[in-house]
Computed example of a mutant assay.
Amino acid sequence: PPPPPPPPPPAASPSSARELAVQALGRVARLAALCRALRQREAEGDEAGWAQAQGEAEAVRQELQEVVRPLREPGYREALRRKTERARKRRLRLKTGRGRKRRLRRQRRKQEAKAAKEEGAARAAEREAKIDQWRAKCIQEVEEKNRERELKAAADSVLSEVRKKQADTKRMVDVLRALEKLRALRKEAAARKGLCPPPSADDAFESQVESLKTLLKNRTELYEAEERALRVMLEGEQEEERKREMEKKQRKERERLLQQKLEIDSKLFGNPDEFPLAHLLQPFREYYLQAEHSVAALIQIRHEWDQFLVPADHPEGSCIPPGWVLPSLPTNDTWATAVR
């Protein structure tokens, strides 16, 4: 029978070319081994072995020619080159795309790390600012207290000095009075003995005493004025201290009332931080709190309430509550689970 027709040449592709190259290399290796066997048989003078090896080599050569025949087809190598170039570009694009994705991931991670670092730095700066503000406030309060203490101590010291001067002035006045009494007694004793001082001595004594009395009176008035000024200053400081204490108490009371109001609102409307659907309840909050922002709404609500007012002696009547009516505690475990 005639030999079968040769198979059609495979389409030019890198995979088929790779397969043909592998087959051709296998035949070449087999042919090289047979050539070495031929030389060995020729050296040994083995004609039968040489002829057998020569037949095998011829068959392998024909197979090699059949294998490499598609590579000799016109246009095969050009088509293979184009497809190889396209495959290389495709691999390059894939590699570049993967590299770009990796770069984008790295950049995104860097940006996230940078953002987290900046956010941490901002939180740390805010925390440091709050600490510095609290520290400055504490330092200011301590300085104010020290200044008030020093001012009060200085005022007390000056006041004690003024009182000491007043005591000295009073003692000098008492000394002058005692001196006048002593001179009068000595003058009477001298008169009983028949001795009378000249009138000029009496005038000089009276003049000196009056001068000293005037001086002591002026000093006394000056010290009294200083004492009144110091007392007014101390009373003003005490009044300021009382005002500050009152403001501090009022501020604490306002904070307590605000915290109480927040707790009541949390019980009635839910905690917006813990309740994720707070934005859904915003229309209801606006509806129930519209009287706080609109006078017309307040009048309308009061008008609707006034329609249901009854006399004070009505058995089912009661006054309007001044604040929120807080819900009572659950009466049993079933209601408690529903409230949760």
Results as ranks from 00 to 15, higher is better:
Pro74His: 07
Glu126Asn: 07
Ala115Gln: 12
Glu316Trp: 02
Gln290Pro: 00
Val232Met: 14
Arg135Phe: 02
Arg39Leu: 11
Arg149Thr: 12
Arg244Thr: 03
Pro330His: 08
Ala48His: 09
Glu255Leu: 13
Arg186Tyr: 07
Leu230Thr: 04
Gln23His: 04
Leu182Arg: 08
Ala24Glu: 01
Lys249Leu: 14
Lys117Asn: 11
Pro198Lys: 10
Arg88His: 06
Arg244Trp: 04
Ala21Pro: 01
Arg88Val: 04
Tyr223His: 04
Leu258Arg: 15
Pro5His: 09
Asn332Val: 00
Leu281Pro: 00
Met246Lys: 14
Leu195Tyr: 09
Arg302Trp: 13
Arg186Met: 10
Glu85His: 09
Arg39Thr: 05
His314Lys: 09
Leu257Lys: 15
Thr337His: 09
Arg163Ser: 07
Gln62Tyr: 12
Glu144Thr: 06
Ala336Gln: 09
Phe205Cys: 02
Leu329Ile: 02
Glu56Asp: 13
Ser328Tyr: 09
Glu241Cys: 02
Trp134Pro: 00
Leu185Met: 06
Val158Phe: 09
Thr169Val: 08
Val175Phe: 13
Arg254Leu: 13
Val68Lys: 01
His303Val: 00
Leu20Val: 06
Ser13Lys: 01
Arg251Pro: 05
Trp305Gln: 15
Ala124Glu: 15
Lys213Phe: 06
Arg340Gly: 08
Pro4His: 05
Ala191Leu: 11
Arg86Ser: 12
Asp265Lys: 03
Pro2Glu: 15
